[in-house]
């Protein structure tokens, strides 16, 4: 293992580590505010790029889809409509949700008829985005004040449901997406795909944005208050449900855009989200699911460890990464403060 190999591996480690970091940030954000470990974030990561495939001209995607509306658009508007039914006591919100549901289908219809690539890109994000907050309203909010374990069980169930739907919507095979920036740049002797720089840029932007949001904006401070003490926050007039929508919304936005930027580098398929989500989760655990900077460092560590394991002993690569969790959990449980069990 010489320098060349180390630098090649490091370049790849940073690329996958950045994605794990974005997932870990979203997981920590959602967990801090709502106590939900949102396993299906991985599925949302691949939903957007797979939806984008339906908006591409057939010469680019290599498929004959004949203006078919992607299944994710139906799912998205269906969830919004169920949300409207649940909130039927509030007519103005019902109206807004129904309009939103129709808008999602309309956007998907426009996209599927063929639009400019950049517009299709944005449409794909918009179509998938409502799935996050709607999932919170439909599946987690009814179980208000449930234990972390109950939330986890719901989240795992949702992961299986979304993964199964992904197979139905998009089939078992992978897709190829055009990069926004093609070509490579040489850093020293290591070639790096230009598209990867977009991922790095977005990651930095996300971190900066989250930092400003949580320290400067009123919404951000309200979310932090919810994360620290839900009762106290409620006493001060902060609605935990509202905080839940915002947290799920931000997390879904981060994850869908990451997925869109990453997709040209990996040829996405319905099954690929889960492992990203799981490794992002490992990274989040390394930071104790409370610290954003530690989660980012944890993500880079997971990325690096994974590349090293792939080089040294490829049959056991994933096993080694998940085995990384054991000593960390052990160490954390020895000095834990019962995170998440208060209230």
């Amino acid at each position: 293992m010489d320098w060349t190999i180390v630098s090649f591996l490091a370049a790849d480690a940073v690329q996958s580590g950045t994605i794990y970091a974005l997932l870990a940030l979203s997981l920590v954000l959602v967990f801090a505010v709502t106590r939900v470990i949102l396993v299906p974030l991985g599925e949302l990561l691949v939903f957007a790029p797979l939806t984008y495939v339906f908006f591409l001209p057939s010469g680019v995607s290599g498929l004959e889809l004949h203006g078919q509306i992607p299944g994710t658009a139906w799912l998205s508007s269906f969830l919004l409509l169920v949300w409207a039914v649940l909130d039927r006591a509030n007519p103005s919100r019902v109206a807004r949700l129904v309009v939103l549901a129709l808008l999602v289908l309309g956007l998907a219809w426009v996209g599927a008829r063929g639009v400019a690539p950049w517009l299709g890109w944005i449409l794909a994000v918009l179509v998938v985005l409502p799935i996050g907050p709607a999932s919170y309203r439909l599946f987690f909010q009814p179980a208000q004040n449930a234990s972390v374990l109950t939330y986890l069980i719901i989240a795992v169930g949702l992961h299986f449901a979304y993964q199964g739907l992904g197979l139905v919507f998009f089939g078992p095979e992978q897709y190829r997406l055009p990069p926004i920036l093609s070509g490579q740049t040489n850093l020293g002797m290591v070639p790096i795909n230009n598209q990867a720089f977009l991922v790095y840029g977005f990651a930095l932007l996300t971190m900066l944005g989250l930092y400003l949001f949580f320290t400067r904006s009123l919404y951000g401070k309200a979310l932090r208050a919810c994360a620290v003490n839900r009762y106290g926050a409620r006493l001060l007039g902060i609605s935990p449900a509202q905080a839940g929508y915002v947290a799920f919304g931000i997390a879904t936005l981060i994850v869908t855009v990451s997925g869109m930027l990453l997709a040209p580098l990996i040829s996405p398929a319905y099954f690929q989200g889960f492992l990203f989500g799981l490794k992002g989760f490992v990274a989040g655990i390394l930071g104790g699911l409370v610290s954003y900077p530690l989660a980012v460092l944890g993500a880079l560590a997971v990325g690096g460890f994974e590349q090293w394991a792939g080089y040294v002993s490829s049959p056991f690569k994933d096993a080694l990464v998940f085995a990384l969790l054991l000593p960390v959990l052990l160490w954390r449980s020895l000095r834990s403060h019962e995170i998440g069990e208060e209230e």
């Binding site: 190999i5 090649f8 591996l9 790849d12 889960f274 040294v312 490829s314 690569k317």
Partner: peptide
């Protein structure tokens, strides 16, 4: 070398092969 159907990076394995 081995890789998994779900892998999104096989750089480690490929570098080992190239070496």
């Amino acid at each position: 070398e081995r890789f998994s159907r779900t892998d999104t990076s096989v750089t480690g394995q490929i570098l080992r092969i190239l070496s």
